[in-house]
Design a protein around this nucleic acid. Sequence first.
DNA 1: GTACATGCAAACCGTTTGCACTATC
DNA 2: GATAGTGCAAACGGTTTGCATGTAC
Lengths: 153, 153
Amino acid sequence: MIDLTEELEVEYQAVLAHFRKKHSRITESRKAILAYMIAANHHPSAEQVYKDLSFKYPSLSLATVYNNLRVLVDEGFVTEIKVTNDKTTYFDYKGHDHINVICENCGKISDLEVELPDIAHEVASQTGYHITKSQFLIYGICENCQKEQEERL
Amino acid sequence: MIDLTEELEVEYQAVLAHFRKKHSRITESRKAILAYMIAANHHPSAEQVYKDLSFKYPSLSLATVYNNLRVLVDEGFVTEIKVTNDKTTYFDYKGHDHINVICENCGKISDLEVELPDIAHEVASQTGYHITKSQFLIYGICENCQKEQEERL
DNA sequence: GTACATGCAAACCGTTTGCACTATC
DNA sequence: GATAGTGCAAACGGTTTGCATGTAC
């Protein structure tokens, strides 16, 4: 098992408590993947989680990693990150706040103009990155789908 | 061919001029895909571009759509948009400004904390979306890769 | 004991590639 | 005429799925 600081251990236990409450089973694989994700200070792919845990858990399968990451995403503990020009999905445990508006129901993607501070400049000065382009995505439910959902009740 | 307004026609001709300058060939497929993308007010997938153009261009292939979208992306005319929980890449002709910071060279993904206005609230009031989560991505070259590139000169 | 989770391997599907052919320049 | 671009079909690769088995409860 990954070694967690006291603070992270609290987080870890809180998620386990959440699983118990939901009557989800707490398996060795699940604990290992959860601990890995909580401890991770990078944004691993499923493959990377699998490789890193395979040493300690030789019987772990890639499908199980995907299954558990999916569960963690569905429960709101982990965020998916997609990067252009890369088929891989990366996973981030409770990613920080990180505008296209995407409807999670119908998949429609809309543009939205909103007043923003000069993020690129700020990012550049703060990180030393040479900024080439940026992408702000907001996920939600569009008006049409909200209506449809209301009508469905 | 898609019918373009005068303004869009100027844009279209400008891109063609760009291609001539680069000694890229201006084929029927290329013109059709470009015009489609310039006229599009949505964010089509390659598949959708292919389907929509297939009527007028029955011999057009999906691979050619991918090739040309790739070219338009490489030349900076089109932006790719990736959405979580969806394998598809969407394409946006000169997307509007739309903070994970992603290094285009090494693929490293970093978190960054930046002061932002209450975007979600603003988006919600402006669009009527019910916001559930958001994702801000900035692409650039990280300090390490900048150094490596400088050293390579 | 029940049924959710796992592991394996095969299927899936968006995207890319290899190659012969076509058409732009 | 040279060669970049095209079209087709096959390959690729990240992710998902079906199913038999294992195990948390």
